[in-house]
């Protein structure tokens, strides 16, 4: 198991290297003069030169590359032009919002989707199956920004049970944090609930046909043990694979959700940075998003091995 984990971690390193290289290269890939775009049409030649100096754009590219990695190694992501703040600090400030949103949504989607899928598979062809799959299709098809607005209107404006938006740090007020997070996380999760429900249903139907499920019944195990232990553990293997992909989708979805619920997260930071050509922030954001994604897939690989001993033993 330890060797498997080490192998997966080593395999993730080249990806991170490539992503950091791409983040660096953004400044070179975009058409036109980066400094001119950042400074805007009214900038004087003197201001442009100062900006170039600050970004290091006047140095040869290999020096810039070495400088980029040297700074990265020290955890320095550069300085935001507009926020007048370190990029690292700006991201760290907003990271808890985005991470709580993403992982809360992932948790909701996994639990609700798996439960729905199991019920649908066990009751395949019956009313409960059709209801669950119908709900999954609706969840799939409804755009999240629209659903978010509906949720805000119903639960925050009309019923006034929950706040319309805003963020309370968990450390400050856990209940306030939860109240603020429920609607955005549920909105973000909905489409993924449908995805997990369909995946789980398909995997469960496959597994329920297997001989070992019949063995479990022949042993006299009660129905919930047969379903929840013998069948589900096997069915979860493909579902976990999808969870890694879903996590990437959720992370991307936070951009819209943060705007709808006015949450001060990384998604909004990056959108703002793109609109105003704040390249250091874009670079940092790209690096961060990719790193999270790589970490999640690493976690998926490890979870995989935990679920399936055949992977653990390299077979």
């Amino acid at each position: 198991m330890l060797r498997y984990a080490l192998r997966r971690i080593l395999a993730a390193l080249p990806v991170l290297l490539l992503v950091s290289l791409m983040s660096f290269a953004i400044v070179w890939i975009v058409p036109g003069d980066v400094a001119a775009e950042m400074a805007g049409p009214t900038a004087t030649a003197e201001e442009l030169a100062r900006l170039r100096e600050r970004l290091g754009l006047n140095r040869p590219w290999h020096e810039q590359l070495v400088g980029w990695y040297w700074a990265l190694a020290q955890g320095d992501l550069g300085e935001s032009i507009l926020l007048r703040q370190g990029v690292g600090a700006a991201i760290l400030e907003r990271l808890p919002v985005t991470l709580s949103l993403t992982f809360l949504a992932l948790g909701i989607a996994l639990v609700a989707g798996t439960a729905l899928g199991v019920v649908a598979a066990v009751r395949a062809g019956k009313g409960a199956d059709r209801a669950a799959m119908g709900a999954a299709l609706v969840g799939f098809s409804v755009p999240d920004f629209w659903l978010g607005l509906v949720f805000v209107y119903v639960f925050a404006v009309q019923l006034a049970w929950l706040p319309t938006g805003g963020y309370v740090p968990f450390g400050q007020d856990p209940i306030g944090w939860a109240r603020g997070m429920v609607l955005p996380a549920a909105t973000l999760a909905l489409a993924q609930i449908g995805l997990f429900a369909r995946m789980t249903r398909a995997a469960m139907l496959e597994v329920l046909r297997q001989d070992y499920v019949r063995t479990a019944r022949a042993k006299g195990m009660p129905g919930w043990v047969v379903i929840g232990k013998h069948a589900l553990r096997n069915a979860l293997i493909p579902v976990v694979t999808v969870a890694g992909i879903a996590c990437g989708v959720l992370l991307g979805g936070t951009v819209v959700i943060e705007s709808v619920f006015s949450l001060p997260g990384v998604g909004r930071l990056i959108v703002g940075a793109i609109q105003r050509r704040d390249y250091p922030v874009i670079q940092g954001g790209l690096l961060l998003t990719a790193t999270i994604f790589v970490c999640v897939n690493l976690a998926v690989d490890l979870l995989y091995a935990w679920l399936d001993p055949r992977i653990r033993h390299g077979r």
Partner: peptide
């Protein structure tokens, strides 16, 4: 079914043709 389950594996047990497919691979 409830009463049957009490009997199965206790008073009356069964083994199958394919020992690989009949054992749960993840336990």
């Amino acid at each position: 079914e409830r009463e049957l389950a009490k009997m199965r594996g206790a008073r009356m047990a069964m083994i199958f043709q394919e020992p690989m497919a009949s054992l749960n691979p993840v336990l």
